[in-house]
Design a protein around this nucleic acid. Structure first.
Lengths: 217, 217
DNA sequence: AACCGCTTGTGAACGCAGGAACAAAGTCGC
DNA sequence: GCGACTTTGTTCCTGCGTTCACAAGCGGTT
């Protein structure tokens, strides 16, 4: 399976492809067979021209004058994003947020499978969430090794996030999604991505108040 | 209180300011009095020059040859972000994720106060989370009006997110943070910001697999 | 009092993402 | 069979964000 296309896809495009994929799945379930870029862009909340440019990274996959075939495009994006391959993930920190992620059915249909839930609190160990049992943090390395998990999710308190990150990296995890409100340092070859819920809220509030000042109309 | 500075601050800068604020608070708690841009940038995970440019939007607030005074800079950023003003927020959808947000103490210290938790499921109504009682969704409009809440957070299932968004907007909420995996439409004047956890995971996985292909070393 | 080292703040160049406009291509109607 | 319409794929351009590099300024030292 050769790849004659430019092998790099911008990160912003990848994020939008995931959104398109969700919309296309909904359209397919609704029985739609084709869709034009304008409609798809409206459903995804983006500009039609930008959408077509995003799709052009996958090579030609539409029919001029008609639009895109829903099922075909969905499968094409699935293939590029690697949805059909199952990826083993471990999740550390089973508080409310960790429970929410472990319980979220949406991950399974996107190729992500949690193979281990870990926490340090004895009270949480043994809980069953989303078909898995919470295990003590000491077993982290063993599980990562045994399952070849490549993705780790950190939903611990900030104080222990760095040590968890170090242990994940040492155990061989190459991609880490961090929800703890700290900036993590990781060795080269390990990609850390941060999601900070309070920062999102802060930005939202700021643009809101700035709009009031800018447009006192 | 005049503002001779350019009154627009880039959104990307605002997001980083929130991160700097957190780091500065930690430094202040640790007893540090001054900090240089290099150290602060390392702690925040950004480029030193970019950090200085970000701070330049607030006007001069450092001392050349020395660095930044921790407490002063912290207070300056707090003022710009409006942390000290309390903002009333409502949260709709008290599942695992909603509970995690309602329970997260970090919001209170950033100027965000939840004044209403809502859910449609009778089983959840009456639960107490983070000092508040979950109320039926029917009371949403009344609470928003009474508290003048300006921020709404949606953590409902995707199917009902749009209707909740409509009701929030009608009730007068101007800023909405959406965690449901759908793209919401809102009238002009209402700012919707989306956080999609599965998209984050998807992007993380993609760059991880792309790195393997790109650098087979 | 003058020098030196350190750090900030800013100006310029680079690269990238986003938007608009246009040509290619395929389908539908006559 | 031919023309016109629709929609894609691409190209150009504009603006923003990021990075590098340097001048300005302050404290400490002699």
């Amino acid at each position: 399976m050769i790849q004659p296309r430019p092998r790099t896809i911008p990160e912003a495009t990848v994020a939008r492809l995931a959104v398109y994929l969700r919309v296309l799945s909904a359209l397919a379930d609704a029985g739609r067979s084709t869709v034009a870029s304008g409609e798809l862009a409206a459903a995804a909340g983006v500009n039609p021209a930008g959408l077509r440019k995003d799709l052009s990274h996958l090579g030609p996959c539409g029919v001029r004058g008609v639009g895109y075939e829903v099922a075909t495009l969905r499968d094409r994006i699935s293939g590029v994003l690697g949805v059909e391959r199952s990826r083993a993930c471990v999740l550390v920190g089973i508080g409310n947020l960790g429970s929410a992620l472990a319980d979220y059915a949406g991950f399974g249909s996107r190729g992500f499978e949690f193979v281990g839930l870990f926490d340090a609190a004895p009270a949480r160990i043994g809980q069953r969430i989303g078909g898995l049992t919470v295990r003590p943090i000491d077993e982290l390395e063993d599980v990562v090794t045994a399952t070849q998990a490549s993705i780790g999710v950190i939903t611990t308190p900030a104080e222990v996030a760095q040590s968890v990150c170090d242990r994940l990296a040492d155990a061989g995890v190459r991609s880490i999604l961090n929800f703890a409100p700290v900036t993590l340092a990781a060795p080269d070859g390990v990609d850390v991505r941060k999601v900070d819920l309070s920062v999102e809220l802060q930005v939202l509030a700021f643009v809101g108040q700035q709009r009031l000042v800018g447009e006192p109309a």
